[in-house]
C-alpha cells in the first residue's frame, strides 16, 4: 500500500457521514429537548440572607420588630400625657378592639378598658397630675367604652345580669380605692384638699359609667313597655276577631 492508497483510504473513511435527513432530525430533537433554562434558575428560599441587601433588610426587620415590641410593652404602663400613651390607646387598644369584636368578648374588653381608665385616673391622682384636660380625656374614653359595653350587653341574652355584675365590680373597686385612701389618711394627720378633689374627680368618672348604663337600661325598659303595649293591643284585636267570628257563626 503506497501513500496515495493511504490518502484514498482516509478520504474514504471521511466520507462516512449522516444523511441530511438524519442531521436535520437530530438537530431538531436536540434543540427541542427540555433543557433547564438559565433564565429561571432555582434560587433557594433563604438565599437572600446571603446577599448584602438581604442581610440589611433582615437586620432592619428584626430591629423594627424588637423596637415595636419594646414600645408596645412600655406603652402599657403609660398614663395620659405620656409620649407613649397614644400608642397604648390608639394602636394597641385599636388592634384589641378589632380582635375583641364578638359581643361576648367585647363586653369583657370594654369593661377592662373602663377599669384601665379608672386605674389611670387613680394613678394620676396619686401623682397629683389629674388636671381637667386629662380628666376630660379619660371621661370621653370611659363614656365611649361604656356605650360600647352597654350595646354589647344588650345584644347578649343575660344583659341585665351582666350590667349588674359590672356595677358590683365598679362598686367593689370604689370600696377598695376608698379603703386605700382611708389607710393613707390614717397614716397622715389630715387629708389634703387636693386628695379630696381627686377623689371627687374619680368618682365623677365612675358616675359617668353608671349613668351610661342607667340611660341604656331606661331606653330598653321604655322599648320593652312599648312592645308590651303593642302586644296587649294585638291581643285585644285577636280577641275581637275571635268574638266576631263566633258571632258570625
Amino acid at each position: 500500500m503506497n501513500k496515495e492508497d493511504f490518502k484514498k483510504g482516509i478520504s474514504g473513511l471521511k466520507n462516512l457521514r449522516m444523511t441530511d435527513e438524519e442531521k436535520t432530525r437530530m438537530l431538531k430533537a436536540i434543540l427541542s429537548s427540555s433543557v433547564e433554562s438559565p433564565y429561571m434558575k432555582r434560587v433557594p428560599t433563604f438565599a437572600f440572607i446571603y446577599s448584602h441587601h438581604g442581610r440589611v433588610i433582615l437586620v432592619t426587620c428584626l430591629v423594627a420588630l424588637i423596637s415595636l415590641g419594646t414600645v408596645t410593652y412600655a406603652s402599657e404602663a403609660s398614663l395620659p400625657g405620656d409620649v407613649l400613651y397614644p400608642i397604648k390607646t390608639r394602636v394597641v387598644e385599636s388592634v384589641l378592639d378589632i380582635v375583641n369584636s364578638a359581643p361576648e368578648r367585647k363586653i369583657v374588653w370594654e369593661e377592662k378598658k373602663i377599669t384601665r381608665r379608672i386605674i389611670e385616673a387613680e394613678m394620676l391622682a396619686e401623682k397629683d397630675e389629674l388636671d381637667d384636660e386629662r380628666l376630660e380625656e379619660l371621661g370621653r374614653s370611659i363614656e365611649k367604652s361604656s356605650s360600647a359595653f352597654a350595646q354589647a350587653v344588650s345584644i347578649m341574652a343575660s344583659s341585665t345580669n351582666l350590667k349588674q355584675e359590672f356595677r358590683m365590680r365598679l362598686q367593689e373597686r370604689k370600696e377598695v380605692s376608698n379603703r386605700e385612701k382611708r389607710d393613707k389618711e390614717a397614716s397622715e394627720i389630715e387629708a389634703t384638699s387636693t386628695d379630696k378633689v381627686s377623689r371627687e374627680k374619680i368618682q365623677r368618672l365612675r358616675d359617668a359609667v353608671i349613668k351610661v348604663l342607667d340611660d341604656e337600661d331606661k331606653e330598653n325598659n321604655h322599648s320593652d313597655s312599648g312592645e308590651d303595649e303593642n302586644q296587649e293591643s294585638k291581643g285585644e284585636l285577636n280577641d275581637k276577631i275571635e268574638t266576631e267570628i263566633k258571632i258570625g257563626f
Binding site: M1, D5, F6, K8, G9, I10, G12, L13, N15, L16
Partner: peptide, 14 residues
Amino acid sequence: EIELNADSKRVLSM
C-alpha cells in the same frame, strides 16, 4: 457492513 471502499477498509484494518 459499513459501506467503505477497499482502500478505506484496508486502512481501517491496519
